[in-house]
Structure formats: C-alpha cells, structure tokens
C-alpha cells in the first residue's frame, strides 16, 4: 500500500513587496520521517513554513498536509499541525499549566481528556517542578520545553519546528534533539528548519537545501554528500602557515593524480582543503608527497564531505558566507513585510 505523503509542497511562491521570499520550493515529506529544511537565514525557510502553517497565504503553488489543502481547508490543517515558532512566545503572567489549558481549549480538547493530556505532557517534558510557576520566571530551555508541550498537546500528525534550537545552550539543545527522536519513534512526522548543519545532519532522514527562495538540492544527507563525490582532507602544514608556503604546497599537491582540488583557507591559518578521490589511499599519498618536499605536518585529517560542502558546491558559498550577506538585507525585508501588511 502506498502511503499518502504527510506534507506536499509544490512550486510554492511567495513575495513580500518587492522581495520574492520564496521563488520555487517543492518538497514531499513521508509520514514518520524527520525532514530538514536547511539554508542560511533569509533563504525562505520561515516563509515556506508560514505558508504551510496557514499563517500566510501563498502567491502560487500547492500545499497539502495529510492530503488536505492548506489554502482551501485551513482549519482542518490547523488541527493536524503543530507549530513551534522560532521565538518562544509565552504570556509571562500565566503559569505553564495555565498556558497549556488555554492551548487545550483552543484545540477544543474536551475537559477530562485535556486534563490527562496536560499532565502527560508536563511529565514527558519534565516540567513538573515548574508547571505552576509563571512562565516569566523560566529559563530559555524551560520555555522551549513548555512550547514543545503546547505544540504537542493536541497530538499533531505533523510537527513543524522553525529553528528549534536557536539560542539554546548545548545541554538544552541535545535535550530537544533527544526528544524529537523519541517523537519520531512514536510516529510523528517532523519538519524542522535549521541553519545548523550538524542539527540537520544529526536528526533528519531527508534534507532539502534551500537558498534564495529555491530548493537547490534534496535527498538523504548521505546521498547529497555522495553526489558531490570525493572526500575531504584538511591539512595544516604549520599552525599558522605563511601564505607563500601554503601556495607552494597547494601547487605541488595539485599535481598529484588523487587530488581533484585544493583551496587555501585563509580564515584558518592558511590551512589547505583538499578534495580527493574517495576510493584511493589519498591520505597516505599526500603525506608521502609532503615528506618528499621536506614540508612539516601540523595536522592532517580526512573526512567525508559535509552538508556545508554540498551547499558550497551548489552555490559557491558556505552557509556562513550566505548568512553574512543575508544579514545586511534583513532590515529591508522586514520593512517590506510591514508595507505588505498595510494593504
């Protein structure tokens, strides 16, 4: 039996004023998987999610959740979706339990069921000691946990999390990761957006990389990495290598048949990033060549390509570079949004 996809997005488009925030996004999420939407800030991830969660009307494209059209039947979609926004928005005067009671009522859970479900969520997210304190006194990690409890209260088929661990400390972050894995094990479909590569790599079974409003690559993390091929060697001749020496070494290494490409990374003490053939014993070959030229080795490491390499290969920039560029456009975009709202 072929299962109906949990989420279908086809050729989604959305603009705010003059900014085309989403140009063409298509993706399909199967039931029970964790799907990662990866991209720099300003790539269109949040806009995509806002369209999916019925907060914003798309300009064009098809959006479905569990086979139900998001545009035509927003109320039914809302009942099936859980949405955890990037910024945790709580009423600081309410206690955690009061917030959950409000949440239960706006999802129309009947009284008794609401009560048991709230107790269940408080226990599950380890909020017992805090449930009857005002949320204004909560730490960041605690707020996120309460937000998760609220988003899961009505047992959504699909949970959407926008940048779930931005601003959390490492401990809270790994707690969120653990929890999302449990949730997936229990059958919930999860869509997360992130600009943290490790987060998507650690959690997602499939990934779409999105840049400037378009999906530029998608598949399992392993597929994406395999597609761009090669392995990576990071080489440091000295802790801080003089540029001249690094360039010379780079030219020398380029002549080796196993080496496909060499980049001198000036941001990291002129270390050398090599793309090498996967099947060869490249590490040995490189080390041997260095020794023959009498060059020292401060550090050398071989690795599989990372998702950042996938992104770099597709756009010619790293996600970090893209973020820097997007940051400067950010304010303008916000203004556009406001202009749009006036209409």
């Amino acid at each position: 039996m072929s299962q109906q996809p949990a989420v279908v997005i086809e050729n989604l488009q959305k603009h705010y004023g003059d900014v085309q925030a989403v140009k063409d996004v298509s993706l399909q999420i199967e039931p029970g998987e964790i799907f990662g939407l990866l991209g720099p800030n300003g790539a269109g991830k949040t806009t995509t999610i806002r369209c999916l969660c019925t907060l914003t009307l798309p300009d064009a494209g098809k959006l479905e959740v569990m086979g139900v059209s998001v545009v035509a039947e927003p109320r039914q979609v809302r009942q099936r979706l859980g949405y955890i926004a990037q910024e945790v928005a709580l009423d600081k005067v309410l206690t955690g339990r009061e917030l959950l009671q409000l949440q239960a009522a706006i999802y129309h859970l009947p009284g008794k069921l609401a009560k048991t479900r709230i107790a269940q969520m408080i226990e599950l997210l380890e909020l017992t000691d805090w449930a009857d304190k005002k949320t204004g006194t909560y730490s960041g990690g605690l707020k996120k946990r309460l937000d998760l409890a609220a988003g899961l209260l009505h047992q959504p088929d699909v949970l959407v999390l926008d940048e779930p661990t931005v601003g959390l400390d490492i401990e809270s972050r790994s707690a969120v990761w653990r929890f999302l894995r449990q949730l997936q094990a229990a059958g919930t479909t999860i869509l997360i957006t992130s600009h943290y590569l490790e987060e998507v790599d650690a959690l997602a079974s499939r990934v779409a990389i999105i840049d400037q409003g378009k999906v530029i690559s998608s598949g399992t993390p392993a597929e994406l990495k395999a597609n761009i091929g090669g392995e990576r060697i990071t080489l440091r001749i000295r802790e801080f290598t003089p540029l001249e020496e690094a360039t010379q070494a780079s030219q020398m290494l380029q002549t080796l048949p196993v080496v496909q490409e060499v980049i001198v990374n000036s941001a990291q003490g002129n270390s050398l990033n090599l793309v090498v053939e996967s099947e060869s014993d490249a590490l040995m070959t490189v080390q041997k060549a260095l020794k023959e030229k009498g060059l020292p080795t401060f550090g050398i490491a071989q690795s599989q390509p990372s998702l950042d390499d996938v992104y770099l290969a597709a756009t010619g920039r790293t996600i970090m570079d893209a973020e820097m560029a997007a940051a400067s456009k950010r304010d303008m975009k916000k203004e556009m949004k406001q202009q749009n709202m006036k209409r």
Binding site: H108, P110, L113, T116, Q120, H154, Q155, A186
Partner: peptide, 23 residues
Amino acid sequence: MSSSSIQNNQLQQWKDDAIASPG
C-alpha cells in the same frame, strides 16, 4: 521519558472524530 506516553490513544480517537465537526 518513555516513548509510550507521547501518544495518547484516547486523544487519537477523539481527534479522528473531532476534526470535521466544530460547533
């Protein structure tokens, strides 16, 4: 945290009935 407490069967059942008919 046991994964069995994430899903609530009673709630699942209620949900299947409730989605179509708000009043």
